[in-house]
Amino acid sequence: MKKIHGMLALFDTAPAIYQAANTVREAGYKQWDVFTPFPVHGLDGAMGLKRSRVPLFTLVGGFVGFWTGMFIAWYMGAFDYPLIVGGMPYFSPVFPFPVAYEMTILFAAFGTLGGMFFFNRLPMHHHPVFNYEKFRRLTDDQFAVVIEAGDALFNEEETRRFLEELEPLEVVAVYEDEEAVSA
């Protein structure tokens, strides 16, 4: 027996998927997603998505980078091998500043990349929605909303009926892979 991943409703136009996202959000579903071939302006608002938390990773990365740069300059110049260069002090926050600044940017970029991977659950080599036979249309000219089985309000019959009320092209159950179930 295949395990159900969720219930998919297929739409033809961007306004239709926008309305569908509004309705699904208002119905109180939490675990669901929308698949579109291109970015649809305002869809994040219709879905009720909050702002990404990736910037937090960027900020933490930036701080770590700044202090790493300063620490390197202090450790080498003032602690491990003190050497007078150009009559400057062993350590001052002034001259290592370009180093700390570059490290800030580098580590902030690492933080952004790491945060993006973390929140997107990357790397993800496969997704059950790929099993949908018309998935390729979702990268071309059609739109879909998928309510996942893990949602508290999910009920195979009721969710199907709810999605059919949105007047989609079709409503299809999407199943997990069999290997994934046995594993």
Binding site: G86, G87, M88, V94, F95, F97, P98
Partner: peptide
């Protein structure tokens, strides 16, 4: 502002 300070500081 920092670059101006930094150049003058370094050249001394």
């Amino acid at each position: 502002s920092f670059s101006q300070y930094f150049l003058i500081y370094s050249a001394n």
